[in-house]
Design a protein around this nucleic acid. Structure first.
Length: 271
DNA sequence: AAGAGACCCTGGATGC
DNA sequence: TGCATCCAGGGTCTCT
């Protein structure tokens, strides 16, 4: 599942292949992948435009075009952007192809069709709804502490709420809570200053480690060169059915929080 | 305002 | 072996 480390990896590894290049055409194998505007308008506004930059906000990618349009891409759960040759057979489940000058194609592969593309003039309509970027300098333990008072929702639910903090999803929420030794059902407001400090450090470490390992390839996610990331080899609890706690040996437990499978050590993370 | 749940979507795993 | 059912969870929407 692409979360912040995966989307950051896609951005980093895509950049050298696409910045400064012109889009020569769009192939839509499934038109529904373009949510707005219409497929025809999308095609005409994108074709011929140079890609002048690429940025990430939370799990969103923005390609800046020469026309000042922004091409927004969200990979959702199962999307990948794969760099390939124009002559190559598209990977299985390719829904759209962005053709670039110089024989290069970007294949938007997405088995479950949750992923989307959108053209926007202004990214603020998206970013205004996003919480702080956890790896930016502005995000400090004090900022995290300031978000928690009066929040009665389970800390796990808050962590993957994009309006609370941007970029954390189900996997990294579980990993950060395990590292911080905090039970996923603890109400946000109940965390002590010491626990908030531990959680802050755990978020930093979990995300930065995953970026170093080029993201986690639990299901479907692939890097732009088509290879898997390796961050999931470090996972202690996420998707941990049948796993045992590395710290105490207790069987990892699964509960459901806000419709998301949630894994934790019942001994190390007491409520 | 905040919290909770439904929904979309379909490949792969599981169960009978 | 084959079929049916369940599960996965991004964001977004609706309801309380």
């Amino acid at each position: 599942m692409p979360e912040l480390p995966e989307v950051e990896t896609v951005k980093n590894e895509l950049s050298p292949h696409i910045i400064g290049r012109c889009i020569t055409g769009i192939t839509l194998l499934w038109e529904g992948i373009v949510r707005e505007p219409s497929a025809a308008e999308f095609r005409s506004r994108v074709t011929g435009q140079k890609i002048t930059g690429i940025t990430r906000h939370g799990k969103y990618l923005f390609f800046r075009l020469g026309s000042d349009d922004l091409l927004l891409i969200h990979l959702k759960m199962t999307g990948s952007l794969i760099i390939g040759q124009h002559s190559a057979e598209p990977p299985e489940y390719t829904q759209a192809i962005i053709h670039l000058e110089g024989e290069t194609d970007i294949f938007f592969r997405d088995p479950r069709k949750f992923g989307l593309m959108r053209l926007v003039k202004d990214k603020s309509s998206i970013t205004v709804k996003l919480g702080p970027e956890p790896l930016e300098a502005e995000f400090t333990p004090g900022v995290l502490a300031g978000l928690l008072p009066k929040r009665k929702a389970p800390i796990k639910a808050l962590l993957f709420d994009q309006e609370f903090i941007a970029g954390i999803g189900n996997m990294y929420a579980d990993e950060a809570l395990y590292m911080a030794k905090i039970h996923p059902l603890r109400p946000g407001e109940s965390l002590s200053p010491e626990e908030i400090g531990r959680l802050y450090n755990a978020i930093q470490r979990v995300l930065r480690t995953a970026i170093i390992h080029k993201g986690a390839s639990v299901v479907n996610y692939l890097r732009p060169d088509g290879s898997p990331g390796t961050a999931h080899f470090d996972f202690k609890v996420a998707h941990g059915t049948g796993k045992y706690c590395a710290n105490c040996g207790t069987a990892i437990k699964r509960i459901v929080v806000r419709n998301r499978g949630t894994y934790f050590c019942p001994k190390c993370q007491v409520i």
